[in-house]
C-alpha cells in the first residue's frame, strides 16, 4: 500500500509541477489542482497509513491518527476556494488581454514606462 500511495503522490506532484511550468493559464490551473491533490494525499499520509484502526490513542496497539484528516479537510476547503478564484482570475486575464498566456499578450514588460512618443507628459 505504501508503494502505491507514494507513486500516486509522486505522479500527481510531478505532473502538477510540469503543468504549472507551462505558459498558458489553463494548464497552470490544472497543474495547481493536481499539485494540491498530491499535497493533500501527502498530508494524509503524515499520520501513517493504517486500515481498520480506531482513531483513539490507548485502545489498541496502533491507531489511525485523526489529526491529519482534520488538516486535510481544512486544506481541501482552502484549496477548492483558491482554485475557484484562480479560474476566475485566469478568465479575467483572458478577457483583458485576449490571450491566455500567463504574461498577457507579449512577453511582459516590467515596470519600466510603456513605449511613449512624448516623454514630457504634458
Amino acid at each position: 500500500m505504501e508503494l502505491v500511495f507514494a507513486l500516486v503522490i509522486g505522479a500527481l506532484t510531478s505532473s502538477g509541477v510540469y503543468l504549472i511550468l507551462r505558459a498558458r493559464t489553463f494548464p497552470v490551473v490544472v497543474g495547481l489542482t493536481l499539485l494540491s491533490y498530491g499535497v493533500n494525499l501527502f498530508l494524509f499520509s503524515s499520520g501513517r497509513l493504517a486500515t481498520g484502526q480506531q482513531p483513539i490513542i490507548g485502545t489498541a496497539a496502533s491507531y489511525a491518527d485523526p489529526l491529519p484528516q482534520a488538516l486535510v479537510l481544512t486544506a481541501i476547503v482552502i484549496g477548492f476556494a483558491m482554485t475557484a478564484f484562480v479560474v476566475v482570475l485566469s478568465l479575467r486575464n483572458l478577457a483583458d488581454n485576449e490571450d491566455d498566456h500567463v504574461d498577457g499578450k507579449q512577453p511582459y514588460k516590467s515596470p519600466a514606462p510603456e513605449e511613449e512618443s512624448e516623454v514630457t507628459g504634458k
Binding site: M82, L89, D96
Partner: peptide, 10 residues
C-alpha cells in the same frame, strides 16, 4: 493589474 495579480496568486 490582471497579469501581476495572476502571477501573485499562482
Amino acid at each position: 493589474r490582471t497579469v501581476p495579480g495572476l502571477h501573485y496568486v499562482v
